[in-house]
């Protein structure tokens, strides 16, 4: 075999993490853009440029990234259940494990919200959807931050390569 089994699963975990970083970046840009839209382009600083992204252009990328990150997470979850969760429980990190279980629920709730999110952004010029589009975008951005932070902390529980 070209690489060891451990290396294989570590590579998948890193891909899952990188996809999550890309998703987090896209969603954060979009959420800030809808919460604090830039009314006029002027000589701008970093924060204004961060807000001034064309938010509608992120919608499809966000959906694709969420689905890919979800699928990668679901794949590595099979190994997590046996090789990570059991030692975490044996070590008594119950709240940490609770947050992981909440992460799987939040990731699913975010996944099923994507069709509406995508539809609202594909009809970004329809003022009827303005409030729903804004709230859904901020909601899934918040979900994404939660998922990312929980995943990051869980990854640190046992340490890299352990």
């Amino acid at each position: 075999m070209l690489i060891s089994v451990n290396t294989f699963w570590t590579i998948l975990l890193i891909i899952h993490g990188l996809l999550a970083v890309a998703l987090l970046g896209a969603l954060t840009h979009q959420a800030v853009a809808v919460l604090m839209p830039v009314r006029q382009a002027a000589a701008a600083g970093f924060v204004t440029r961060f807000r001034a992204v064309p938010a509608a252009g992120y919608a499809t990328a966000v959906c694709v990234l969420w689905i890919l990150t979800f699928l990668m997470g679901a794949w590595i979850y099979t190994k997590y259940r046996i090789y990570v969760r059991i030692p975490i429980e044996q070590a008594g990190y119950w709240k940490t494990q609770g947050f992981f279980d909440l992460k799987e629920h939040v990731a699913t709730l975010g996944l099923v919200t994507l069709p509406a999110y995508w539809y609202f952004w594909k009809n970004a010029h329809n003022p009827d959807y303005d409030i729903a589009r804004k709230v859904v975008t901020v909601l899934i951005a918040t979900m994404c931050w939660f998922l990312f932070l929980v995943g990051h902390v869980l990854n640190n529980v046992r340490g890299f390569g352990s």
């Binding site: 709730l109 099923v112 919200t113 009827d128 409030i131 729903a132 709230v135 909601l139």
Partner: peptide, 13 residues
């Protein structure tokens, strides 16, 4: 109501 799209996932958490 369109608000159900974001209200229900929020309540589910």
């Amino acid at each position: 109501p369109l608000a159900l799209v974001w209200l229900l996932p929020m309540l589910a958490i």
